[in-house]
Amino acid sequence: MGFKLLSKLLVYLTASIMAIASPLAFSVDSSGEYPTVSEIPVGEVRLYQIADGVWSHIATQSFDGAVYPSNGLIVRDGDELLLIDTAWGAKNTAALLAEIEKQIGLPVTRAVSTHFHDDRVGGVDVLRAAGVATYASPSTRRLAEVEGNEIPTHSLEGLSSSGDAVRFGPVELFYPGAAHSTDNLIVYVPSASVLYGGCAIYELSRTSAGNVADADLAEWPTSIERIQQHYPEAQFVIPGHGLPGGLDLLKHTTNVVKAHTNRSVVE
Rank of each mutant, 00 (worst) to 15 (best):
E101Y: 08
G240D: 04
E267C: 03
Q229L: 12
I104R: 00
V187S: 04
T93Q: 01
L249F: 03
Q61K: 13
T36N: 15
L159A: 04
Y202Q: 06
G158F: 15
L97R: 01
E101D: 10
S160Y: 11
D64G: 09
H115F: 00
S181E: 01
S113G: 10
Q228V: 13
S191I: 07
L10K: 06
P239M: 01
M18K: 04
V266C: 02
K4M: 07
Y34E: 12
R76L: 11
A178F: 07
A259R: 10
A25N: 12
A234Y: 04
D29G: 08
D77F: 10
R110N: 15
Y231Q: 00
G65L: 13
A21N: 08
S161M: 12
G148Y: 08
A192F: 05
I186G: 02
T140L: 03
P170D: 06
E99I: 10
V237Q: 00
A200Q: 04
T254N: 15
G242R: 03
A95L: 09
L10I: 06
R206Y: 08
T93N: 02
E267Y: 05
S208N: 15
R167M: 06
Y68F: 09
E219R: 10
V194G: 01
G2Q: 06
S16E: 08
N211Y: 07
N149Q: 14
L156F: 13
H115D: 00
V212N: 11
Y48E: 09
S208T: 12
N71S: 07
E267D: 15
G240F: 02
A144V: 14
G240I: 04
A218C: 09
E157V: 15
G65C: 02
F168C: 03
L156K: 03
F63L: 10
P41I: 11
I20M: 11
S62V: 09
G158N: 14
L159H: 04
Y196G: 02
A51P: 03
L195H: 02
T36A: 07
V257W: 03
D85L: 00
E80H: 07
H154G: 12
R110Y: 06
S161G: 14
D248F: 10
V189A: 08
H117M: 00
W220G: 00
I58Y: 12
L173C: 02
G2M: 14
A19K: 08
G65P: 08
I40A: 12
K4Y: 05
V212Q: 12
F26Q: 10
V108P: 15
A87M: 00
A21M: 15
T254D: 07
L5F: 05
A213Q: 08
V265C: 06
L250Y: 15
Q228E: 12
E39H: 07
A209P: 12
W88G: 00
Y202M: 07
T153S: 08
P221M: 12
A218F: 12
L127C: 00
A95K: 08
N71G: 04
A21C: 15
V166T: 08
N149H: 11
Q228A: 15
V121N: 01
A66T: 08
S7F: 15
N71T: 12
P69M: 07
V28Y: 06
D29Y: 12
T109M: 12
I50C: 02
Y175Q: 03
R142Q: 12
H252T: 05
I58D: 03
E33N: 07
T114D: 00
S193N: 08
T207M: 11
I100R: 01
T114F: 00
K251V: 07
L83M: 15
E80T: 14
S193P: 03
I50G: 02
V194E: 00
D29W: 09
A136W: 03
A95P: 02
P176K: 01
S155N: 07
V124A: 08
E225A: 12
G245R: 03
A59Q: 15
Y188A: 05
A66V: 11
A94M: 13
S30D: 06
S155A: 13
V28C: 10
L217S: 12
L243E: 09
V257M: 12
V132S: 04
G148T: 13
E99Q: 09
H115Q: 01
G2I: 05
K4Q: 07
M1L: 04
P23C: 11
T222V: 12
V121S: 04
V75H: 04
L10C: 12
